[in-house]
């Protein structure tokens, strides 16, 4: 963390300037995302937005998340998006024409309404003196607004990373284990949907009665009754062994 960010987490002018600059970048890149005609430019705007949010995480005393944000979002997810864009070559698509006339206006009005109500509802109680995190007013309970206690004490006791680790493996251990199911599904999904070559005979159970395939479905070429040969099974095993990396690559 740079000294500026270190200062920023302690509040004061550094935090204000960081917030103004980084917030402007975040807003600008978000508008860029929805207004850029070129999908690749939109993806780059998304990276910029994620970087800005990572800085805000650091300011908000979430150092671990800031790093994760960089590695997972900016480093993996957006790269995946860019990879798919390059693979499909859809970058020149003119994608700003509305599906229904007046849709853009309607959507913008709805968006403004959503923003005003969300901002009023969420930020309203947190705008007073006491809502400056870790300030004297917040800690002593004087001043207006809901107090923002700040994470300085929590992070000082165990450190951000150790604290998160303890939480993950105690209070949130079940949720943590359950994400295993999610990741298995994601891997299976990527393989099922992304597999390029598929032996149609594998989609039919050997020894069972099946109606002939529909014309034009592309799978009628092979005889279902032949049964799996060694070569088929070998190919199946090969794909399965390369499971996670291959699934990822193909997305």
């Amino acid at each position: 963390m740079t000294p500026v960010l270190a200062q920023a987490t302690e509040g004061g002018a550094a935090e204000l300037w960081t917030f103004i600059i980084v917030g402007a970048v975040a807003l600008g890149s978000a508008f860029g995302l929805i207004l850029m005609r070129n999908a690749v430019h939109a993806a780059l705007m998304l990276v910029l937005n994620f970087l800005a949010i990572a800085v805000l995480y650091a300011v908000l005393q979430a150092q671990f998340l800031a790093v994760i944000q960089l590695i997972v979002y900016a480093g993996a997810i957006v790269v995946l998006f860019l990879f798919v864009l390059m693979l499909l070559g859809v970058s020149r698509e003119d994608s700003l024409t509305a599906r229904v006339p007046g849709q853009k206006t309607m959507a913008s009005v709805l968006g403004v309404l959503l923003f005003v109500s969300l901002a009023a509802a969420t930020a309203g109680p947190f705008l007073g003196d006491a809502s400056v995190c870790g300030s004297e007013e917040a800690l002593t309970g004087t001043g207006d607004g809901v107090p923002c206690l700040g994470l300085a004490a929590v992070n000082a006791a165990e450190g951000n990373l150790r604290g998160l680790g303890f939480l993950l493996f105690t209070d949130y251990v079940w949720a943590f284990e359950v994400t295993a199911v999610l990741l298995v599904i994601a891997a299976i999904g990527a393989i099922v949907l992304g597999r390029r070559q598929e032996d149609p005979s594998e989609l039919v159970e050997p020894g069972s009665t099946v109606l002939p395939a529909r014309r034009g479905s592309g799978s009628a070429a092979t005889e279902p009754g032949a049964g799996p040969t060694d070569a088929d099974e070998g190919a199946a095993t090969e794909t399965s062994e390369a499971t996670p990396s291959e699934g990822e690559e193909r997305t």
Partner: peptide
């Protein structure tokens, strides 16, 4: 699924995992 040639081996694991999500 046999008839439509979509009887992939991953179908049953996915069914069980969806059900896992539902009970969760």
């Amino acid at each position: 699924l046999q008839d439509r040639r979509i009887h992939r081996g991953e179908y049953y694991p996915l069914l069980l995992l969806t059900a896992t999500g539902m009970t969760l």
